[in-house]
Amino acid sequence: MSKPVYKVGDEIRGPVRGITTTRIEWYDSAMLSAATNELRQVGSNIHTDEAFAKSEGFSGVNADGMIMTNWCSEMLVKAFGIHYLERGSLRNKYIKPTNLGVELHVRGRIKEAATGPKGGTLYTLDVWCEDQKGTKLVDGDATVEVV
């Protein structure tokens, strides 16, 4: 990958994906598998069990915030490659529950480009996820120094 170059105001786009029960189970099962080093299947929790989610005060099952964070991270890997993995950061706030059926759009915008501590270009980005109506569900920011 050649060195990525952006200017302030440039937008980057991540995936557009529907929130489905299958995707929620893929993530939760993968998290357990990664934690135990063996193939695991998620059980009942607020992300997979409608009755349990309602008993805990939610309107229904909702996606684990880490699904959206991973999709934001995917966008940054595509946009910045190894620079993001070596000298990046990502912050996400889950400001609203992301419910089943939502069409999620992952987006980013370059907010600042300055000289970084390693002498490269330090990009600061707004990063967020919104639904099909443009309502922000996840807010955040990221930094990447490209050297």
Partner: peptide, 10 residues
């Protein structure tokens, strides 16, 4: 529930 994630990669 998770409210905020903030990771810095070194």
């Amino acid at each position: 529930i998770h409210f905020e994630y903030h990771a810095k990669h070194h």
